[in-house]
Every structure is written in C-alpha cells, then in structure tokens.
Design a protein around this nucleic acid. Sequence first.
DNA 1: GCCTGTGAAGACGTTCACAGCA
DNA 2: TGCTGTGAACGTCTTCACAGGC
Lengths: 210, 210
Amino acid sequence: MKASKIPAATITRLSIYSRALENLLTQGGAPVVSSKRLAELCGVNPAQIRKDLAYFGQFGVRGVGYYIKELLFDIRKILGLNKDWNLAIVGMGNLGCALVAHQNFAKQGYRFVCAFDADPNKIGHKLATGLEISPVQDLIEVCRETKAEIGVICTPPERAQEIANRFYQVPVSGILNFAPVQLQTCEGCKIENVDFTVKLDNLAYYLSMS
Amino acid sequence: MKASKIPAATITRLSIYSRALENLLTQGGAPVVSSKRLAELCGVNPAQIRKDLAYFGQFGVRGVGYYIKELLFDIRKILGLNKDWNLAIVGMGNLGCALVAHQNFAKQGYRFVCAFDADPNKIGHKLATGLEISPVQDLIEVCRETKAEIGVICTPPERAQEIANRFYQVPVSGILNFAPVQLQTCEGCKIENVDFTVKLDNLAYYLSMS
DNA sequence: GCCTGTGAAGACGTTCACAGCA
DNA sequence: TGCTGTGAACGTCTTCACAGGC
C-alpha cells in the first residue's frame, strides 16, 4: 500500500469510531448510523467523520447514513485489524501482567506470543494465559522464533532504550512504549508512546489554570 | 490565571521537556542546554522548543542557552507541578495496583489519597503504600474527605461512565481515564484518556501500510 | 560566533456550506 | 427531505529565517 498524506489524527479517530460502532452493534438498535449520531458518541464534528472516511473511499449511503456492520468491517480493514498481530512484551511487573491479562487485546486480534523479564525469580513463571516468562537475554532469539511483530515495553525508564535496541535487531516493525522516556528511533520501526505521566501533567496544567 | 490560546501540543511537549531536563540534571554535565540539544533529546524541532517557551516568557540567555535547573523549575511551575495533587483511583486490578505502585507519580507530586473497588473481597485490603481499598459506594464521601482533586479510572469499560458520573458529583476537576471508552463530559471537569488499544491500532495501521 | 526570541511564511487539519444522490 | 461526499474557507500549529544580545 502507499505511504500517504493521511493525518495521524484521522487514524486515531478511526480507532475510536470502531469502538463506538462495536458498541452500537452489541446494543442492537437500527442497523444504520448517521455521521451526526456517531459524532455525538465520539465527541467530534460530523464533517470530521465524513472527511476521515473520505480518505479511504465512500462508505455511506446518501440520505440514509452508514451501515454499522459494514462500516465497522471496513474501518477494521483500513486499520489492518483483519489479521492477528503478534506481540512481545518486556517487563512483567504489575503493568506488564495487567496488559497480558487485558481482555480487549485478544478480542481485537492482538496476541502475546512471548514475555520477558530481567528478574531471575520470574523466569519460567507461567502467566494466566499459559505464556511463560523468558529471560531478556534471549529476547532477539525468542522474538524471531515466535514471529513477534510488535514489541511492548513495560520496563523502568532506565531500561527502555536498551530493550528498544534489541527489538530493533529482531527486527520488530513497531513498539508500544509504556516507559516514560523518549526512545531513540530506528528506521523501519514505528514507535507509539503511552505516557500517563504526560497526561497527568496535562491535567495538572489545565486544573491550575482555572 | 487566564484561559489562553496555547496549543494543547505545547503543554504535552513541556511535560516531555521537563523529563529530558530531569535526566540532564541527574547526569550532571554542563549546567546549560541549547534548544538544539534539547530538541534532539525530545525528537522535535529546535524552533518548536523556543516557540513553546515563548508562550510563557523568556527563559534563555542569547548566545548561551537555557540553564537546566532554572528551566526545569520554570516548566514545572507552568505545568502546575509546584504543588501536590491528590488522586483518587477506582478499579484496583492489575492496572490500578501498578499505577499506585508507580514510582514516578510520587516523585512528581501526585499522591493517591484514596482507592476504590467494587469487589467486596478487595475492600479493606491494604496496598503496599498503606492505602486501604474502599467500596465504590462510598466514592463521593471518601473523595470529599480526602480532598481528591483528580480521579483515575481503571475499571472495565462498562463501568467507567458510572464512575465518571460519581466523580462529577464530588466534584473532582480532572479525570485520567484508562478505560477504552469515550466518556460523556461534564462542565468543569477536564478528561484525559490513556488509550493503549488506540495506540496499538495506530501501530497496526502503519505496519500494514508498508 | 553562537544561540535565543519572534514575525512571517508555510503546512496542516478542521469546519463550513452546498452539491449530489437516495 | 435527509444525509453523504467534498471543494473551499478558515483556523491552528510548525518551521523558517533573521534580528537582537551575550
């Protein structure tokens, strides 16, 4: 596919639309939704939704709206969720375990295929899912064996860059980084940061304004 | 203070700058940093840093750069981190416990002053920090007693809106939401979402492009 | 010479407003 | 009539380029 000029914000919103559509589907009302209604559910402007979708084609019916089931399928396809993704996770503390246990991942086709920790006491321990914790030294090898495509970093910040470097060698094509550091990037590996300290700081700023 | 026209992205970056400055400080090299160097560490354009700071005043010395310690202090003040913030957390599963245990929060002046869960088996249980888990029924009362200012939601998505509504009644002035849902907002309460499923979907999109 | 501070230019994203179609 | 699809207008954010000062 083509490297294109689609706003990053559009992709983020597509993900949010898909969640709203899933909810509409399980609630089981009308099979159709208008951009106006979907916009309310997602807290955005209706034109924004139509514009976002227009980047990828025409999905609606004029005068009617969007067929929920079809649109959900199309959006998931756009997002690349019509396949399973193999995840490798490093740092099996509370956060790491929480992620592996997290229902929503499996439901969306994200599968943890290997897990790592530096603590010798944790090596060999089996998680609820049956996944066994491997030593970080074996990261590259095990990631290759298990065909990991995305790395998830839940280590303390001091360790994060070192782990990222190993992921670059595997190589994995993406990293989801929970450590509060800005990782040095690497050609061909896309990084997404999940940064709660930054989010909290944002809150602090807005609250101390008013 | 004034409600102003400062980009949200600027606030997010300030938080990132402050982290980089903290690192520079603990590493203990030169007491001064240039926008160029700081930009490298944060993965942004140097002019961006100068522009971001310019919204709030003049912090640098021409021909020299920024004094790390002073700039860090100033940024923390801008972000409202020159005071402690009281947090209330709901949903003491793996994720909730991970957050309470998280070192970085305490270090930045964020204090968990109360914790809640719906599971009767967890009520009364003491966390590592000495914090005791209270029943969600008492949320409003306990939040008021403990002067909670920010609510943290770590419940399953089905529960999140209900918890948010209670937080609105306390009222808290901000919510950090880890549940993968778009919460209905409330006048006077700022919401920040920490959404790893969205981040993963973003990765999936970019990876399936190439 | 070096690096900050900043107006102006440029790029980008969002919203409007209406044409097109069921 | 109702709602999508979309060019054009608008507003916002980022980057450039250079003036100002150490």
